[in-house]
Design a binder for these strands. Structure first.
Lengths: 249, 249
DNA sequence: GTTAACTGTGCAAGATCGTGCAACAACAGG
DNA sequence: CCTGTTGTTGCACGATCTTGCACAGTTAAC
């Protein structure tokens, strides 16, 4: 029995029965449990299954990479994107962050506005190229598996040589106390670098972000020049003095 | 027993049983395991099988949904992509050019092969990220409006700092006299830079490219290490001495 | 808290791999 | 017919990989 056949069999079992018990498979295939455990470990390392005590289970759909969530935009994100589009000045150079809100923005870019778009997100880049006449610059780097955005040293090097008028920043948390936060460390670094090379930074604040806090800090609220809230967001934070001051900042 | 007969038999076994064990076949055919191993190695180098410890397995078919969507009769680009996938060695770093053939390759990348993928195409990058476990590096730069591929100074600078094992090159023309050609000047420059940073360059030659000539030269045929033709391409060029020598180059 | 099952690691035996080498056959040119 | 060349084949050998076992640490269950 070839090693690859064993792994195929394991993946097959995983798909058909939703679980694999190391002991059972070892007995069924006539190999030692050690080999099965080794196989499961390797499959888990490749992200093809999840190791659990006694065997393994398939990768849950919820953990699927963000790429598959592409295209789903809540109404709130659409409204924020539309509002942000109003801030795009003809002839300017803008940076569009990765994320569903900026992806929505990329699809709404005005025609004939002589825009230059810079983005670290391949999805946003393609949307901007297809949906507008803008020149599109793609920031290179290693793509994060979770949010499909370029980051790392290569990206920082490229960003250091760029300059833009407005940076439309997407984050996962916007909180009066904790400031702007995101779920990936590398992503936070890239966002800061983009902000540093832009004359203005504007945060896109769809409803579910307001009041939320993620793991890694990106910027202080004082460092941004504006926040675009969802005009229909009824959150008390948006209506508060905090929200108002940010909106006008 | 002639060498070609042995290889035919191996391919037959591969197709019928889904695997080949070197030891078994050697005993069955009455030749040494070395010869079988040599055959399998050559078949693997041609992309006709995948070498594994103990024997070999067939090249994995394209993803099931893909097949069902497009029917059994995949087009020339799909067949070339499939054949090229067989040349991707586990653990290696590959460059995937922009184009529909390389896009098909990105969708077929083997799981759990510990690959690193470098590409100047956002569409290829997203496909690779979505369909495999590979690390994906995106080459930045200005996106050409025609083929959505990064190019220009930024791209060249980024490419200069990369290195890869194999570059899967897509062009629009492959001609014995004119060599490899493409329709955009900037694109040709990018392709050359990628080839210069890769240990090997392999050209993807779907049927409609063979014998065609485009405006801008990319490389001489002598500069590439292999050409993947469509196995079902009946063009006289492919069967000619020219096609054969390239195929084996 | 105790017990049994499970896990990762180190290790040694065996299988397999790639390479270099020599023997041999097939072939072209003189 | 002879000879040099080329290509194939089997063998030897060191390197690498896989596998099962032992053992100690960890986890789940009772």
């Amino acid at each position: 029995m070839l090693g690859v056949q064993r792994k195929d069999h394991l993946l097959d079992l995983l798909a058909r029965e939703g679980r694999v018990v190391a002991k059972e498979v070892a007995a069924a295939l006539g190999v030692s449990e050690d080999s099965i455990r080794r196989d499961l470990r390797e499959l888990a390392d490749s992200g093809l299954c999840i190791r659990v005590y006694g065997g393994a289970v398939p990768v849950p759909a919820a953990d699927a990479p963000e790429v598959s969530r592409r295209g789903i935009a809540t109404d709130s994100k659409e409204r924020v994107a539309r509002a942000a589009i109003g801030l795009v000045r003809p002839g300017s150079t803008i940076v569009l962050d990765a994320g569903t809100t900026t992806l929505a923005m990329a699809r709404m870019l005005p025609h004939g506005a002589d825009l230059t778009v810079i983005t670290p997100s391949p999805a946003v880049a393609l949307a901007a190229l297809e949906g507008s006449q803008a020149r599109v610059f793609l920031v290179g780097g290693e793509l994060s598996r979770h949010s499909a955005v370029a980051g790392g040293g290569l990206a920082l090097e490229a960003i250091a040589h760029l300059a833009a008028d407005v940076f439309f920043l997407g984050v996962t948390g916007i909180d009066p106390g904790q400031g702007l936060t995101t779920g990936e460390l590398d992503d936070a670094v890239t966002k800061r670098a983009l902000a540093a090379r832009s004359a203005e930074t504007i945060v896109l604040a769809s409803a579910e972000k307001v009041g939320a806090v993620s793991r890694f800090p990106v910027l202080d609220l004082a460092a941004v020049h504006g926040v675009v809230f969802d005009p229909e967001d009824a959150s008390p934070l948006v209506g508060s003095e905090w929200g108002r001051s940010l909106r006008l900042a």
